[in-house]
Design a protein around this nucleic acid. Structure first.
Lengths: 341, 341
DNA sequence: CGTTTTTCCGTAAACGTTTACGACAACATA
DNA sequence: TATGTTGTCGTAAACGTTTACGGAAAAACG
């Protein structure tokens, strides 16, 4: 079934060295023999054994992505990641690289699994998501000198790695601007409870914009919960029951918004009618919800492709001998106005 | 950084053969030296190089999962898969196996990528999802004798591989039973347009139950669309505009239901009030939707674990020398009554 | 004490690649 | 002709494991 380089050599009556050189496009092989090798490879359905190749080369030709379930809810996951992975994989495949997805073990926030990937050299580099403000994974990877890139920023690890992020700060501010322009002054913010960096950035933009408009930031209008439906559902009533309730709520993502809207409805408050709602990271869910939720849709698939490019360019083994390269990018987030605000 | 078996041997002044045997728990090594090897391995932070190991062993110690984005919608993916993958990965990790996730290329339904995984021997086995009624992937894998397991049934490939599925047929029937018991006789079914097998099974149960109740199956009440929000949104109006409109709709999954409900609201029809709604494969979305949608929640994480077990047991290299084993399982789907019907 | 068995360990080959090195022929140059 | 250059290819080592084989020492047995 699996034909090796030896089979090709025997079949063509030449040495395995020549076969390998022909296959790898090296210069010191006759054009004629190269063609014969290529033909034979196609005929015998040859494809190189990855283990042998990576053992010899010292690189695995694959990139790992650390995927995690929702913190606080093992039951369901984040559809967010799938289109991102699609882009990532597509770009990596163009360079003949494979994508390994490693699930994080709940609890230790992936440290253990990350070590395993690094130490067994299962991948040449790793991509991290849901970066935290202080991220021990980043500290670890930089300390051992393992190549990586992140979806999202962090304060850890200096500026020595490629990262791609969305401008959540601006999105938070834009959301506030829009609501203020529509007459709101009591604006709540509901964000994830963990120190996920995008929640932090969102809140920073929210605060800044409020102050810019001369509106005092009221801690009673800021709540945090798990970044899923349950989180939004549990936390929203508290905000609504404050002394001076909000007339608008900004949710950090679609799942929290869904749960929050459920809570609102149960309180007899109609989202989009009695109260304005904006979502920072939306999905098709927002568009098809009733009322359709105003939000910011991230271009996930292009982000995946771009981060793959950036990562590859940062790895000497894959990149050409180019000079310094862009190492961090922050993409704008564009508001899509719908019916909920 | 990365210490090899040679480092251990040199450090302990013994041969690499002994080190390997000690590490692999073979019998012919002194208990004392074994302990010394283990200690040294821990101290030198040794972990075996996967490439070397799999080259020698002829197995990669990793399993591939083919992940695909929504057909007809590249933009977002199926949260369905994440908890399933969590379970799969958890179980595989217990046996020291890694999980490789390979994204399917849109268009050729994964044939090309699947070939690549098989031919380069990147994995020892592969897990398929979203099985079709006739599935060329299954035919291919059986024809080349590559081990695999499927989430979902298919008519392809005989009975020679492990598969785990949910009883969509019974769920479809249960949904009909419940609606009929509540007085409905005009019941619509909205399912995916592709020949995804779970859509087929669902419809079979739906039909069977209707006939059992002496209700004629009306083709006008059956519609198919892309298995996402857009699909449900586009297809639902057609069903509602039939000569004798339904008083209840069964959606095949949560995304289609969301889109369908949007369409209903736009037509001035209130889901859960003017019309009953049931979802076959629900997610937390259903619970937090307003009205909360009655549906069947699949135990995805346990399913992932179980399928990993079944797959491992079917691979001679991993399994002990056990006899014949359960090769196909169909799990029941339990209805969770909520507010929409 | 001689023989057989057991226990433990070292040697070396093998897995499928890649690549440094050298060999040989053909050809060009002086 | 002698020398150098170029083009092409084979040889063999190396990557880090695992494992069949054999051997030496120790233990068991007569």
């Amino acid at each position: 079934m699996a034909s090796s380089i030896h089979d090709l050599a025997r079949h063509l009556n030449i040495s395995i060295g020549t076969v390998s050189r022909a296959l790898n496009g090296r210069a010191d092989v006759n054009a004629d023999t190269r063609q014969r090798v290529l033909d034979a490879a196609a005929k015998l359905n040859y494809s190189p054994n990855q283990s042998g190749r990576s053992l010899r080369r010292g690189s695995t030709h694959s990139i790992a992505f650390m995927l995690q379930p929702h913190p606080g809810d093992q039951q369901y996951g984040e559809p967010f990641f799938i289109p991102f992975l699609t882009g990532l994989q597509a770009k990596l495949a163009e360079s003949g690289l494979d994508l390994i997805v490693v699930m994080g073990a709940p609890g230790d926030y992936q440290q253990e699994r990350l070590r395993r990937v690094v130490e067994t050299r299962r991948a040449d580099a790793v991509v991290l998501a849901w970066t935290r403000r202080e991220d021990e994974r980043i500290d670890y990877l930089t300390s051992v000198g393992f190549p990586f890139a992140t979806l999202g920023r962090s304060r850890s690890g200096g500026k020595s790695y490629p990262s791609l992020d969305l401008d959540f700060e601006k999105a938070g501010a834009d959301a506030v601007d829009r609501l203020v322009a529509r007459g709101h002054r009591r604006i709540a913010a509901i964000r994830p409870s963990l120190d996920l960096n995008f929640g932090y950035l969102f809140l920073a933009g929210y605060r800044k914009a409020l102050r810019r408009h001369g509106i005092e930031v009221d801690p009673e209008l800021i709540a945090s919960g798990f970044i899923n439906e349950a989180g939004g559902y549990e936390v929203t009533p508290g905000v609504m029951n404050s002394k001076d309730p909000p007339t608008a709520i900004i949710f950090n993502n679609d799942a929290m918004a869904l749960g929050g809207c459920k809570a609102l409805v149960e309180m007899g408050i109609k989202p989009g009618h009695d109260i304005a709602v904006i979502v920072i990271v939306d999905t098709p869910l927002c568009r098809y919800f009733s009322p359709a939720l105003t939000g910011f849709r991230p271009p996930l698939e292009p982000m995946g492709r771009r981060l793959a490019e950036m990562l590859l360019a940062s790895i000497p083994a894959y990149a050409g001998e180019e000079g310094p390269r862009t190492i961090r990018e922050v993409w704008p987030l564009e508001l899509i106005a719908r019916d909920s605000d």
